Simulated assay, not measured.
Amino acid sequence: MIIARSAQELEDALKTRPGSRGFVPTMGALHIGHRTLIDAARRENECVVVSIFVNPTQFLPGEDLSKYPRREEADFKICELSGVDILFYPDVSAMYTADEIRITAPDVRGFILEGASRPGHFDGVLTVVMKLLNLVHPTRAYFGKKDAQQLALITQMVHNFFMDVEIVPMDTVRENDGLALSSRNVYLSSEERQEALKLSAALKHATKMVMQGNVKSFTIQSAMEEILAPLDVEYVAIVNRAFQSLNEVVIGDTIVLVAARVGTTRLIDNVWM
């Protein structure tokens, strides 16, 4: 495995690995969910590139940038054991300069749900993903469905800017008890982890309601909120793939999303229907 720490080192490494290229961008603290993305990239491409970069521009003031889990040695080992060909591990100076051009999120879809509570967050996400895609030039790039709004906006950016890359959505990976894997799960105490299961339980109940023919969004949201209590719920939303609110679930074009704080840890989860 080649470890590249600058744009030039990455360019040099890519020249040694011809053929189709699968790319998995991450912020490190790798877990089984990331491993699933890497495995898919390995199956479908001749070269696999993973990036680890904790992107400062997507964190708002007061958020957990300084506390975000960093596990360099473990992450490198996971990448090596997963058959990664090139690991891109830049620092901030390799990715950003002063007073540079940035990508901005769309006026509507970039400022609802995640964007409403974290204004400017998606500007940072889209900016760094644009940079990484332009550096790696992948055939395919792999993103988890758990960050559904992020996935939708990245897909829109690729379309709007006529970028030659296939965005591959991957299903959310869960623990045996249903908790969606997240690097932030390490912040949860044992008691908080049990409380966090209310997110997946609420989504499971929503799925059951739809299967029983209860497709009214208001009814589903109300039932989910009861299950989520007394968590600090930020939103429960039912939208289509374009992130437009729905009055009723439409099978094949619906995402049910939830965001809540468990203690001081903010968690998100969703189910695609």
Rank of each mutant, 00 (worst) to 15 (best):
A141H: 02
D107Q: 07
D75G: 10
T127E: 01
K131W: 00
V168I: 14
T265L: 11
M157Q: 10
A148H: 09
L203D: 02
F122N: 04
L135Q: 12
P106Y: 06
I86G: 07
T16H: 10
M209Q: 13
A259C: 15
A116C: 01
V24L: 05
A206Y: 15
M273R: 12
E9T: 00
R140L: 04
V108R: 13
P119E: 09
M130P: 00
F161H: 14
P138S: 06
S66D: 15
A29N: 08
V173A: 09
H121M: 10
A41G: 09
E73F: 04
F23A: 06
I38E: 01
K145M: 09
D123S: 05
L197V: 07
T219S: 15
L188N: 03
L60P: 00
L179E: 03
F162M: 09
R266H: 06
Y187L: 10
K204S: 06
G213K: 08
V233C: 12
G213F: 11
E44H: 10
Q194V: 08
S183R: 01
I2Q: 13
D75M: 03
G263P: 03
A4C: 10
E191T: 07
P138H: 10
R42W: 10
D269C: 11
I3Q: 13
F53E: 03
A116S: 08
T139W: 02
M157H: 05
A260F: 13
R43G: 01
A105H: 01
F76C: 09
D164K: 14
I238P: 00
L87D: 01
I255H: 09
V239Q: 11
Y142T: 06
Q221F: 09
P25N: 12
M211R: 09
V24C: 07
E225G: 00
E80T: 15
V249E: 15
M170V: 15
D107V: 15
A141P: 02
D232L: 10
C47M: 14
M130R: 05
T264E: 03
R42T: 12
E191Q: 14
M224K: 07
Q244L: 11
H31F: 03
H31Q: 04
A259H: 11
G213H: 12
L113P: 06
L37F: 12
N160L: 08
P119T: 11
P138D: 03
Q212N: 05
E225H: 04
V271I: 15
Q58V: 10
D232F: 04
V165K: 13
G120E: 01
